[in-house]
Design a protein around this nucleic acid. Structure first.
Lengths: 162, 162
DNA sequence: ATATTTAAGTCAGCTTTATTGACATATTAA
DNA sequence: TTAATATGTCAATAAAGCTGACTTAAATAT
């Protein structure tokens, strides 16, 4: 009985890869919980938050821009976006050059709410940046960016396209 | 009309914080897509993957250990775990010291499937580590760990408790 | 000018993954 | 013996996604 052990280097490598996977999972889990708590009191959910976030980040983005960015279907976005418009968080304007487009903007109410949601995550991330230091932050960005699909890294850096 | 501009340092800070938030969102989105593709052909989903992952990572973990780690309800886990047991991916053994406990283990089939799912993420993360370099990886870990709830950092480092 | 494509929206039905609440059983601990 | 714990189960509900089919209005291409 002669069990071949994995090569020490490969073993170490696997451990490091699993550590990254786990940290990504747990950090994501905890980092979404702060806004989720606030959202729970409003009848909105995480999906609404994402739309508020990216419309706030790129005012005037179009419906199809959001669809590509969030990688969800029109029907899924429709419900979420419809509620946000109905509840007065988001305004739509017909595009000037292409009047089929619906350009999306936060209302004042939407902007205030987005800021409130952001502030919870801001605090968490700011604390993490501060504790880890600027070099660690640079590494954090670099690794995350390389985890993103190669074809979409540009888009991510510009936050949103179109 | 005298609009007060935000202080440049705060502005920069906000941009950096938003960049972290966005990278975390997009990296997580893309990093889950590889296993999701495989899972789609099997009738299992992301929830099953998480259970397979952590049982594989900590053989002999208990149901309540998983509940705390994944932070879901017993009823949610029940369905997922039940399917995994029924389909022969996971085996349960009564605890030796406490016979109420169900200790969880991957079967050979479960182990093989977990390896297959892991391999897709392994490739993505390994490429990111390689491109970014070891110092960046250290920063990546450190920032992510500090984003995790303080009370659970120990647990995360040990991958799973109990 | 007409035909095609595009941007957006809608209706209907389904799936996955989570929730709350109530209760049951076996086992351990006080 | 009683109380607490670990697990399991029934039932109903919600959030957020999906596919497929179709409509309307506007822009583009032929």
């Amino acid at each position: 009985m002669h069990r071949k052990l994995p090569h020490p280097n490969l073993y170490l490598r696997e451990e490091e890869l699993r550590r990254g996977i786990e940290l990504l999972y747990f950090a994501y889990r905890d980092f979404t919980q702060d806004p989720d708590k606030i959202l729970a009191d409003t009848g909105l959910g995480r999906a609404h938050h994402r739309v508020l976030y990216f419309v706030g980040r790129s005012p005037g983005t179009t419906v199809s821009g959001l669809l590509k960015l969030l990688r969800i279907t029109k029907q899924s976005l429709s419900r979420v976006l419809g509620q946000l418009v109905d509840d007065g968080y988001i305004e739509q304007q017909a595009g000037m050059t292409d009047r089929r487009q619906r350009l999306l903007y936060l209302t004042e109410k939407g902007d205030a709410f987005e800021k409130q949601l952001f502030s919870t995550q801001r605090e968490r991330v700011a604390q993490a940046y501060k504790t880890a230091g600027p070099e660690a932050v640079a590494g954090f960005w670099e690794v995350l960016l390389n985890i993103v699909n190669e074809t979409e890294r540009e888009t991510v850096l510009r936050a949103i396209e179109k």
